[in-house]
């Protein structure tokens, strides 16, 4: 009958009136963020970085500026450079993540934060000090070792137990504690183990983890001992 469809329409909207709003009141509450979410930040671990500037070379926009000087440390492995300048011009960055992909030592991670609003363009260039001092909440993007992370230095499960019905993403980059360079693990190390290409050192020369927070004296990083 004519008009019934109009009543039906009214009922549809009335049903929606009784529903809970979808809105998430952002500053107070946050949407659940996927751990692989690429934020507008970078997480950099100076202890792992050798100053090879792969990230700067791979950056398609050329917005990473690295200046290094000889540090005199880690001579047997080839020198680790001391970084003097590490500027990322965030205002031009498109967050493609090629710098993170290029990093051979897993020193650079995509961050999970996104609140990088600034009042001046000058402040959009993040400097080495900001990278050092920032709270480190790395995204799991291109860093699959983080996906099995449960917290603590030794709690990496290298094979996430998806089959047991657990959440693959137990790692919560936003809500969890900031991670130190030991805790984030090193996926490319395992990759190099199978490939044996591009590595200068044999595996048996790995130095055991001393448990200290000192920068590694070995180029592989102490977490390699966990392998």
């Amino acid at each position: 009958m004519y008009g019934l469809a109009m009543v039906k329409g009214l009922m549809v909207t009335l049903k929606n009136l009784t529903r809970k709003p979808f809105t998430i009141q952002y500053p107070e509450e946050r949407a659940k963020q996927h751990p692989r979410f690429r934020g507008e930040e970078f997480v950099w671990y100076e202890e792992r970085c050798t100053g090879c500037a792969s990230c700067a070379k791979y950056c398609p926009l050329g917005i990473i500026k690295i200046e290094t000087s000889p540090s005199g440390s880690m001579i047997p492995q080839g020198e680790k450079y001391r970084l003097e300048v590490f500027d990322i011009e965030l205002q031009r960055c498109m967050f493609c993540g090629l710098c993170v992909e290029a990093c051979p030592y897993d020193a650079l991670f995509m961050g999970s934060g996104f609140e990088q609003g600034q009042y001046s363009r000058k402040n959009m260039v993040i400097t080495i000090d900001q990278l050092r001092n920032a709270e480190k909440h790395p995204s799991t993007w291109f860093r699959p070792q983080l996906e099995g992370y449960e917290g603590g230095t030794d709690s990496f499960r290298r094979t996430p137990t998806i089959a047991q019905g657990e959440s693959r993403f137990s790692y919560d980059p936003r809500g969890g504690p900031p991670l130190g360079w030991r805790e984030v693990g090193r996926e490319s190390w395992r990759w190099h183990q199978s490939e044996k290409a591009g590595m200068r050192l044999e595996q048996d020369e790995a130095v055991p983890d001393t448990g200290s927070d000192e920068p590694p004296q070995s180029g592989r990083g102490s977490d390699a001992a966990a392998d």
């Binding site: 909207t13 929606n16 009136l17 809970k20 709003p21 979808f22 809105t23 009141q25």
Partner: peptide
Amino acid sequence: RVLGRFQNRVGPN
């Protein structure tokens, strides 16, 4: 407010 709730939003709050 009411229109917001009809559209599953919150409206001015």
